[in-house]
Design a protein around this nucleic acid. Sequence first.
DNA 1: CAATATAGGTTGCGAATCACTACCTACTAT
DNA 2: ATAGTAGGTAGTGATTCGCAACCTATATTG
Lengths: 177, 177
Amino acid sequence: MNHNGPYKLREPLAEIAACCSLPQALETMGERWSFMILRASFNGLHHFEEFLEELGIARNILSNRLTRLVESGILKRAPCVDDRRKIEYRLTDKGLDLLPTMIALRQWGEKWESGVPSNPVLVDERDRRPIQPISIRAHDGRVLTHNDLCWIDIADLNNATGNEGEHDGVVKRIATI
Amino acid sequence: MNHNGPYKLREPLAEIAACCSLPQALETMGERWSFMILRASFNGLHHFEEFLEELGIARNILSNRLTRLVESGILKRAPCVDDRRKIEYRLTDKGLDLLPTMIALRQWGEKWESGVPSNPVLVDERDRRPIQPISIRAHDGRVLTHNDLCWIDIADLNNATGNEGEHDGVVKRIATI
DNA sequence: CAATATAGGTTGCGAATCACTACCTACTAT
DNA sequence: ATAGTAGGTAGTGATTCGCAACCTATATTG
C-alpha cells in the first residue's frame, strides 16, 4: 500500500472486492457513455456515425468505448457485406442480457427522477399491456425487499427446507451485494 | 450548438435524450464509485471513514460523491446523537429502490464476468432458497426478452385488449429504452 | 485544564480522462 | 479522376481522479 511511483494509475474496481461481481460488471459498464451506447444499440443503431449523431459523443471517446465494449464481449464488430467501409456493431448475448439491468435503471429514473409516466410505454407485444416493475423475487415469485434477503453459504443450500432452527449457514443480514 | 467558449463543459447526459429517464438515472449513478458506495451502504456501512477504508477511494472523491448522492436524494445525512463528530449516511427510499438494479447488474456480472456461482448466495430469508434471476415480466408474470417488447403511446393503453388489428399506437419495435 | 486523537472534510498538485477540432485511410459514388 | 463517406487517430485544452497535506470541530485522556 506504499507509494511507489509518483502516482498509482487507476486501480480496476474489480480488484476492490474480488468476492463480488458487481465491481467486475462496473469495470466496463460503469464508464461514462457505456450505458448510453448500450441503449442506442437496443434502439437499433449499429454504426459509428449513427452513435455519433444520436449521442453527441466525441469521436475518439466513442471509438474508445466501442473498442472496450467489443473487448468485453458486449458488442461485436462485423464488416458490412454491401459496403465494405461500414462496420456493424451488434449486441452479443452478453450484451442483450443487460436489458433487465437497463430497464430496471430506467424504471428507477422514471419513478424518482422524471416523475412523469414517460410516454411511450414499454409493453408486452402479445397483449399490449405494460410490463411489470423489475423486482426481486423469491423462488415462488413473491416480491422481496432488502429486508427479506440474507446470505447463506453455497454448501448449505441443499438442506434449506430441512432443518429450520439449527446452524444453517447464514452469513450476514446483507453481507456483500 | 455553436462553439462559444474555448470548450463546452461536460454536458449532462440527461439533456441528451430528454424523453428517456435512463440518462437522468445515469446522471448521478453513472459516475465512478457511485454504485460501489451504494453497495457499501446496503452492506451496512454508514460513516465516512468506513467507506474510505472499505472502498479505498480518495478522500476528496468520496466527499464529492457522498455530497452528490445526498443532493440527489439517494443518501441522507444525519448527525450522530452519541458522537457529534460523526455523520450517518443512510439510504433513503429512493436509494433503497435501486436494489433491483444493483442485483440485476451483479447477477449479470456473476453470469458473464466471474463465471463462478459466487459464494455466499443471496436467498429469501423465509425459505432460504436463492432468489430468481432478475427478469422482465409481462403483467401476468411471463418472462419477456427484448424480442417480446414494443412501445405504445400512453393514450392507447386503455383500449389495449379491445380492437386488435387496427391502428393501435405502436410506435416502434424498440423505440427508446 | 492541556494535550492528543478522531471524524469529516478542504486544498493543492500531478496524472488520467474527456471534449473538440483537424487530420488520415480505405472504400464508394459520380 | 474527383469528390464524398465510414471509421478512426492525433493534438490540445478542460475536467476529473488519486494522493498527500492541512483544517475544524468534537472526544478522549492525563
